[in-house]
């Protein structure tokens, strides 16, 4: 069972500045900082490992600056990594470290192997393009060339993400935040990727809107069987969407486990502080 992963991260590391390994000595949770006084470098993430199975959602939780978004961006390819491996089942059956791919092939993974939903919809969407057009971009990138079928598929995806079809041909820039996030989800799912990364997908939305988007994400994750990584600072989001999670602090994973276990029986001092704050 343990070999049945869709995404596998091995000892991923990202050091901003000189990649001097002495930076590891005076950084991390015990040192209470990610910035090395020795070298001046920032250890944004180090020795991060986890795997996600098809149909499983893994949470990455931590405060801002904990390195969770760095990890996501390194996996997505938005940011370079210093060391480690990222493996996708769909790329040479996982034997290839996609960090070794040339930038072009790496970017190409974003067409159908790996999708990202960003906190800011402007990062994942083109606001000066219609909702349908945004989805058409994903589809045409994957080789769709039939206008009618593109229309149908875009409509189907928007319907699935609860975007009124009457707004399909409106510019995304005219949409509300919650609606933009739904379009971003529709675009991310357009080519049925086996892996999806969600970075604070509901942060910044009004509470009632966020709840609706969260419901939608949970339904989509269950229905599509996609392997998901959910990055969030919010335990409510992690609890709702994931079965397992890792806790990050100053660039390192301090604890990992079943999500309900982490919430009810956190071991690491930092996890206890985090849970305590969330429960307060």
């Amino acid at each position: 069972m343990s070999t049945n992963w869709a995404l596998k991260i091995e000892s991923l590391g990202k050091i901003h500045g000189i990649p001097d390994l002495r930076s590891l000595e005076d950084t991390g949770p015990e040192k209470g900082t990610a910035k090395s006084a020795l070298t001046g470098s920032i250890v944004a993430a180090w020795d991060v490992s986890f795997e996600v199975a098809p149909g499983e959602a893994l949470g990455v939780i931590g405060e801002s600056g904990s390195g969770k978004s760095t990890v996501m961006r390194c996996i997505a390819g938005d940011q370079g990594s210093t060391t480690g491996a990222v493996r996708l089942r769909t790329v040479h059956d996982g034997h290839m470290n996609v960090l070794d791919l040339d930038p072009s092939s790496r970017r190409h993974l974003r067409v159908a192997d790996l999708s990202v939903v960003y906190q800011d919809p402007a990062e994942g969407l083109r606001l000066n393009v219609t909702a349908g057009g945004n989805i058409a971009e994903a589809l045409t990138a994957a080789g769709w060339r039939h206008f009618g079928r593109i229309r149908d598929r875009a409509a189907e995806l928007l319907d699935r993400t609860e975007v009124p079809l009457s707004r399909m041909d409106d510019l995304v820039g005219t949409f509300s935040g919650g609606m933009r996030q739904r379009v971003q989800l529709a675009k991310a799912l357009a080519n049925e990727p086996p892996v999806i990364l969600l970075d604070e997908p509901t942060t910044g939305l009004d509470a009632s809107i966020a709840a609706g988007v969260l419901d939608l994400i949970r339904n989509l994750l269950e229905e599509t069987g996609v392997a998901a990584v959910v990055v969030s600072h919010d335990f409510a989001v992690i609890e709702m969407l994931t079965t397992r999670c890792v806790v990050m602090n100053h660039g390192r994973i301090v604890e990992s486990g079943l999500t309900d276990r982490l919430l009810e029986d956190p071991h690491h001092p930092y996890s206890q502080k985090l849970v305590g704050a969330a429960r307060a």
Binding site: G132, N134, T140, R151
Partner: peptide, 19 residues
């Protein structure tokens, strides 16, 4: 051009047709 990534060209044709 280098990556033959012409999806956005297609999107502009798509939007033209839609509009």
């Amino acid at each position: 051009h280098a990556e033959a990534d012409y999806a956005r060209m297609w999107v502009s044709l798509y939007e033209d047709k839609v509009r």
